[in-house]
């Protein structure tokens, strides 16, 4: 049953990735002006231009162009960067590991700390702790990531000099970026955990567990938390992309290599092959992340895998 669900869910990726690749493909054709003007280096001769038209197949129909573009990508050919003059595939291969590391750490940090914080705030009787967590959740879900990153740099890197200001050398350079992305992620997970726990606690079976004399700790860990994890996994599955999106912003501020900073730099330079390649990779990462989240959810909740297959 689960395998069936995974199969059909993975099948959904096909139409989704086709529509996304069409949107990203169309970028070059939708920007005002001739696509060649956006691809060509300043000062090229007309014959260079004609050569480029043929090279990119712009004399062909738009459908042929699309299938050529997609076909080339299956062979690992993402085109050549205009400004950096290197194959886009190389640039992506160089930057992708940094983004994946950052994303994975930020995701783990958000989930673990968020669940702990949410559990504490739902179970504590202390008003001070509750207010503190509430304030943290509010700040975490509202403060802009890039500004938080700048404050982190000012305080921890410049004032206290605990961590490097920027770059990606060594593990200590990961701390501030992960904390920055994590701040928002923790707030999200903590909020959902808290609400879920408070909801489950009202159920009849919990009253029964108390009545039969089970200790509060055992109820929390054996019964409440497993139940409450369902909405938490749902929101994590839905928002996995948003944590990756946080990485885009934060990479740029910390001047870390990565898909996000590659993309933002390329957008500023109007380097469209790089823009297309990195957007596509980021979109793919979001889709795969959402897929993993959905499968995790289906593994936990039989109702989902029954309903959707």
């Amino acid at each position: 049953m689960l395998l069936r669900y995974i199969f059909f869910r993975a099948l959904m990726l096909i139409p989704v990735s086709i529509s996304i690749s069409v949107v990203i493909f169309m970028i070059v054709h939708l920007i005002p002006g001739d696509p060649i003007d956006n691809l060509i280096r300043v000062g090229s001769s007309p014959s260079d231009r004609a050569a480029l038209v043929v090279k990119y197949g712009l004399d062909q129909s738009i459908f042929v162009q699309y299938f050529r573009w997609v076909g080339a990508m299956f062979h690992g050919d993402f085109g050549t960067a205009i400004v950096l003059r290197r194959p886009v595939a190389d640039l992506i291969a160089q930057n992708l590991p940094y983004s994946l590391t950052l994303g994975a750490f930020a995701f783990a940090f958000s989930s673990i700390v968020g669940i702990i914080l949410g559990t504490i705030s739902a179970t504590t009787r202390s008003k001070v702790v509750q207010q503190f967590v509430r304030g943290f959740i509010l700040l975490g879900s509202t403060v802009p990531g890039f500004w938080l990153a700048l404050l982190m740099i000012l305080f921890f890197a410049v004032q206290l000099q605990w961590f490097p200001v920027s770059g990606a050398r060594g593990w200590d350079s990961l701390v501030l970026p992960v904390l920055t992305i994590g701040f928002g992620g923790v707030a999200l997970v903590a909020r959902v955990t808290r609400v879920a726990l408070l909801d489950v606690r009202r159920e009849d079976f919990v009253v029964l567990l108390h009545a039969k004399g089970l200790s509060s700790a055992a109820i929390l860990f054996r019964h409440l938390l497993p139940h409450a994890m369902l909405p938490v996994v749902t929101i994590l599955a839905l928002r996995i992309g948003w944590i990756l999106g946080g990485a885009v912003t934060v990479e740029f501020v910390f001047a870390r290599p990565g898909l996000g900073s590659l993309l933002i730099r390329a957008l500023g330079q109007r380097d469209y092959p790089v823009v297309q390649g990195s957007l596509l990779m980021l979109a793919l990462a979001v889709m795969l992340g959402t897929l993993i989240g959905d499968v995790a959810q289906a593994m936990m909740d039989p109702r989902i895998r029954e309903a959707k297959t």
């Binding site: 949107v23 990203i24 169309m26 970028i27 939708l30 920007i31 005002p32 839905l238 992309g241 948003w242 990756l244 999106g245 946080g246 885009v248 912003t249 993309l263 933002i264 957008l267 469209y272 823009v275 957007l279 980021l282 979109a283 979001v286 889709m287 959402t290």
Partner: peptide, 16 residues
């Protein structure tokens, strides 16, 4: 499912 910043960057890529 797509982060707002990614959608925004796609639009910046198209419209400038």
């Amino acid at each position: 499912s797509f982060p707002d910043i990614l959608i925004a960057l796609i639009f910046v890529a198209i419209i400038g």
